[in-house]
Amino acid sequence: MVNKDDGSLYYEYKVGWQIGSIIAAKNNVGVVSADIRAKSDTGGHTLNSVPVFAYGEGADAFNGMMQNTEFSQLLFEAMKP
Rank of each mutant, 00 (worst) to 15 (best):
I23M: 04
V31P: 13
G20C: 11
A38Q: 14
K4G: 02
I36W: 09
V52D: 00
L47Q: 10
P51Q: 00
N68I: 07
Q73W: 03
Q73Y: 03
L9K: 15
K14G: 13
D5R: 14
Q67W: 01
I36L: 12
F76T: 04
V52S: 00
D41G: 15
V31I: 07
Q18Y: 12
V32W: 00
Y10K: 11
D60T: 02
N27L: 06
R37E: 14
N48A: 08
T42K: 15
D5M: 13
N27V: 05
I19L: 11
W17N: 09
Q67Y: 08
D5I: 13
N28T: 03
N3H: 15
N3F: 12
A78N: 08
M79H: 04
R37F: 07
N63E: 13
D5Q: 13
I19Y: 08
K26G: 08
G64Q: 01
I36A: 14
F62S: 02
A24V: 06
E77V: 06
E77S: 12
V52G: 00
D60H: 03
G64P: 10
I19G: 12
L9W: 11
F62T: 08
Q67K: 04
R37L: 12
D6H: 02
G56M: 00
E70A: 06
G43Y: 01
F71D: 00
D41S: 15
T46C: 00
Q18P: 05
V2N: 08
F71G: 03
N48L: 09
T42L: 11
Q18F: 12
D35T: 12
S72R: 07
G43Q: 07
F53N: 00
G30T: 09
G56E: 04
Y10C: 05
F71Q: 04
I22R: 06
A59D: 11
S33A: 07
N3I: 10
M1D: 13
A59L: 04
V32A: 01
V50P: 09
M66E: 01
A54W: 09
G30F: 13
I19D: 10
G20A: 13
A59Y: 04
D6G: 03
Q67T: 03
K26T: 12
A54I: 09
D35E: 14
K39F: 04
D5H: 14
M65P: 00
Q18K: 15
S40Y: 03
Q18N: 14
V50F: 10
T42W: 10
N68Q: 07
V29H: 01
